[in-house]
Design a protein around this nucleic acid. Structure first.
Lengths: 209, 209
DNA sequence: TCGTTTTTGTTCATAATACCACAAACTCCT
DNA sequence: AGGAGTTTGTGGTATTATGAACAAAAACGA
């Protein structure tokens, strides 16, 4: 496979393949064909094969893909064959739920630093993690070498927090605040806004679509 | 504009336009050009104009779009010019955070029914909402005429819950469980899995991308 | 009033994406 | 051993999405 730049849309699908493969692994499946994986995910098998072919030849004709091996390869490609420390900014209801969330375990991520600007929260602990003053972002993030942050603050504070994080060296932001962030283009942002997701579905309900 | 089918990718952008416009509205802005909106969102102005043109001519040459009016039109198009009752299944940490979430207010959505299968939770109240037994899904959802549900249960229960919801008449599901759901094609699903979103960014960190 | 500047809606060309189809490689059964 | 059945990786093609460019319309200033 030529060393072409891999399209972002391909990268965005790999985590879905990985998630499904890990699910199958827990079910005890050892080998899987692109066809079966495709059916589970509701995509075409050709797409899966083509996406994977950007990175190498992982399958075997006649049988398919070794589940364990493909999982390892995908983790390596996505760079989640390690554990990334993350900073969480904004410890409200949502922030707290994220700290307690068990789903990060074994997936390559770990919340290691908490920030909030509410004096009543600073110093308190959640899951043995102390809540730090947001003003210490520029000091603690470089010290820990943190590259990934989660923003869970009110919308009007989000851009300011993002600016601070970027200045401190963060390269990837998972943004739960309902606002589009302005960041330098070397910084990646992913958005989670339940309202946006819901509004993407209502168009199709009821009407003549 | 001809009555062509509107591509899903266009629909998926409209909530972002709406969100930015409402932000500008709160700032007191009355008129906006596609150019300015585009810059805020990091997209091209041609794209915004083209997306909007699927639904009509909302702008005026020389000045731009009336913010108030465009908001109303987008809300009408997306069918959020009303309030949708939603059912939430799974009242764990995340479910609780969603019930307390203030962001649904005024955006067209309202959580009106809670379900859980944990006997210790059933009957308890959160925000004046009683937690109902999940076995009552098939009874209460049609009774309330609910069309939208949020799934916040552990992954191994998610597919079963989805099946129940679909049977009860739900047409749109916001799925927080880390699993791809199998649903009939008249049912829309949107996925929120922080791990997937994070894994879409790590590929670009550090390496030679 | 009239020329200059803005901005829309749309056309058209280009780019990105998805998918069909098939040779080659492997499996499995008899 | 060998033929039938599977499944991969990929070349080619159809489809879809993006973006540049421009006429028409409105705004503005002198």
């Amino acid at each position: 496979m030529a060393a072409r730049e891999v399209p972002n849309i391909v990268i965005s699908r790999l985590p879905l393949y990985l998630r499904a493969l890990e699910f199958m692994q827990r079910e005890g499946k050892q080998v899987v064909a692109s066809r079966e994986l495709a059916e589970r995910l509701g995509v075409s098998s050709a797409q899966i094969r083509k996406d994977l072919s950007y990175f190498g030849e992982f399958g075997k004709q006649g049988s398919g893909y070794q589940v364990d091996h493909l999982i390892l390869e995908l983790k390596r490609i996505l760079k989640v064959d390690r554990e990334w420390d993350m900073a969480l900014v904004g410890v409200g209801d949502l922030g707290r739920a994220l700290v307690h969330y068990e789903g990060f375990k074994g997936k390559g991520f770990c919340i290691s630093l908490l920030f909030d600007n509410n004096p009543e929260k600073i110093g308190a602990k959640i899951n043995d993690l102390e809540i730090m003053d947001s003003r210490l972002i520029s000091e603690l993030i470089p010290k820990w070498g943190i590259k990934i942050a989660i923003i869970a603050v009110p919308p009007q504070e989000a851009q300011g927090v993002a600016d601070e994080l970027v200045k401190a060296g963060v390269l990837a932001i998972l943004n739960y605040a309902p606002i589009t962030l302005k960041v330098p283009k070397h910084v990646k942002v992913q958005y989670i806004d339940p309202v946006v997701h819901l509004q993407r579905m209502t168009y199709y309900i009821g009407g003549n679509n």
